[in-house]
Simulated assay, not measured.
Amino acid sequence: MALYKDQFNGRYDFPVYEGAARKFVVIASTGRSGSHMLGHVMHETGAFGAPFEYFNLENLLEWKRIFGARSTDDVIHRLMAKRTSENGVFSMKLHYSHLLRFGGIDAFMERFPGARFIMLERQDVLRQAVSTVIARQTGVWIAGQEGSGQKPVYDAAAIDKALGEIILDTASWRYDLSTRGLRKAELRFEDFCGDVPGGIQGIADFCEVNLPTLPETPVTTKQSGAINAEWAERFIRENAGGSLIRRRWELLKRLV
C-alpha cells in the first residue's frame, strides 16, 4: 500500500497532551470498508483524536522517521501527545493484520487498556473485494493519493482472494473481540452513510464521549464508480467465486 501522506499533516494535531490518554477507541476494520471516511468524520467532531491508520507498516516507518523513533512504543508515545483530543481520547484505525505490530490482541490490550472497538463492516463484501483489487492494481486506496498509473484489469482470481481475506479478517476480529469479552459496537458502513449524525452520536454514546460538534455530511470523497459495479456483476455472472467455500466443503467432507 502506498504511503498516505495527508496523515502526517499538522492540521490533524491537537494541543500537546500531557501524560497518557484517558480513553482509547479503535476502528476495527478491513480494507476498503469505509474506515477512512469514518476516521475523518470522527476527527471532525474534535472529540475522538484523529483515528487514522498509524500502524500500516509504511505509515509506521514514516512516523518513526519523522519522530526519530526506534520503536513502535516510542511512536505511540509521540502520537498520543499530538493526536489525543483535549478530552483525553486517542483513537486509531486498525486492520486485523496491524495487530502483528503489537504481538496480537492480548498484547494490544496491555498497551491500550480498556480500548473500545467500533467494528466496521460493509454489507456488500463482493463490492468491497472488487474495490480492494482495483486499489491494489492502481495503488490508489484513498482519493487524492498518488497511484501507479496502472489501468485496472479484471481479475476473477484476485477478487476471489480478496473476498476470502475480508471474510476471514472479519471473522478474526469477531473471534478475538468476543472471546476476550472486549467492548465493541457494530457499525454497517451503508447505514452510517445514510445517517452520519446519528451514526456518530451512536459511537459517542457507546464510547461515553460528549460531542462538541456533530458533522452533517461525509468529509471525504467516494471512490467507487461504474467499473466496481461492472466487475461485481461479471464475477457473479461467470460464477467465478467459491474457492474459499470449496476448500471448507472439502475439509468438512473429510471430517464426516
Score class of each variant (00 low, 15 high):
residue 1 M to F: 13
residue 2 A to K: 15
residue 4 Y to A: 15
residue 7 Q to H: 15
residue 10 G to D: 15
residue 14 F to Y: 09
residue 16 V to H: 07
residue 16 V to W: 05
residue 17 Y to C: 00
residue 17 Y to T: 02
residue 20 A to K: 14
residue 21 A to P: 11
residue 27 I to W: 00
residue 33 S to K: 08
residue 42 M to N: 04
residue 42 M to P: 05
residue 46 G to K: 03
residue 47 A to E: 07
residue 48 F to K: 01
residue 52 F to K: 10
residue 54 Y to W: 07
residue 55 F to I: 03
residue 56 N to C: 00
residue 60 L to S: 00
residue 61 L to M: 14
residue 62 E to M: 08
residue 63 W to K: 00
residue 66 I to Y: 11
residue 67 F to G: 02
residue 69 A to N: 12
residue 70 R to Y: 10
residue 73 D to L: 11
residue 74 D to H: 08
residue 75 V to T: 09
residue 76 I to E: 01
residue 79 L to F: 05
residue 80 M to S: 07
residue 80 M to C: 04
residue 82 K to F: 05
residue 83 R to E: 08
residue 86 E to D: 06
residue 90 F to I: 02
residue 91 S to E: 00
residue 98 H to Y: 14
residue 100 L to D: 14
residue 100 L to C: 08
residue 107 A to M: 10
residue 111 R to V: 12
residue 111 R to H: 04
residue 119 M to Y: 11
residue 119 M to N: 06
residue 122 R to N: 09
residue 122 R to F: 10
residue 124 D to P: 12
residue 126 L to I: 11
residue 126 L to E: 06
residue 126 L to D: 01
residue 130 V to I: 13
residue 132 T to W: 14
residue 132 T to A: 14
residue 132 T to F: 15
residue 137 Q to K: 05
residue 139 G to Y: 12
residue 140 V to H: 06
residue 140 V to Q: 12
residue 141 W to A: 07
residue 147 G to Q: 06
residue 147 G to H: 04
residue 147 G to A: 04
residue 148 S to D: 02
residue 148 S to I: 08
residue 154 Y to V: 06
residue 159 I to K: 04
residue 161 K to W: 12
residue 162 A to R: 00
residue 164 G to L: 05
residue 164 G to W: 09
residue 165 E to Y: 06
residue 166 I to F: 11
residue 169 D to P: 01
residue 171 A to D: 14
residue 173 W to T: 03
residue 174 R to S: 08
residue 177 L to Q: 04
residue 181 G to T: 03
residue 181 G to H: 06
residue 183 R to N: 10
residue 188 R to C: 10
residue 190 E to M: 06
residue 194 G to C: 06
residue 196 V to C: 07
residue 197 P to E: 03
residue 197 P to Q: 08
residue 199 G to S: 05
residue 200 I to V: 15
residue 200 I to E: 03
residue 201 Q to Y: 03
residue 203 I to G: 02
residue 205 D to Q: 11
residue 207 C to F: 00
residue 209 V to Y: 01
residue 214 L to H: 02
residue 215 P to R: 00
residue 216 E to F: 01
residue 217 T to N: 10
residue 217 T to E: 15
residue 218 P to S: 11
residue 223 Q to L: 15
residue 225 G to M: 01
residue 226 A to I: 09
residue 226 A to R: 13
residue 227 I to A: 08
residue 229 A to R: 12
residue 231 W to G: 09
residue 232 A to I: 04
residue 233 E to N: 12
residue 233 E to W: 04
residue 234 R to W: 08
residue 241 G to R: 05
residue 242 G to V: 09
residue 244 L to G: 09
residue 250 E to Y: 03
residue 251 L to Y: 11
residue 252 L to K: 13
residue 254 R to I: 12
residue 255 L to M: 11
residue 255 L to G: 02
residue 256 V to R: 15
residue 256 V to M: 10
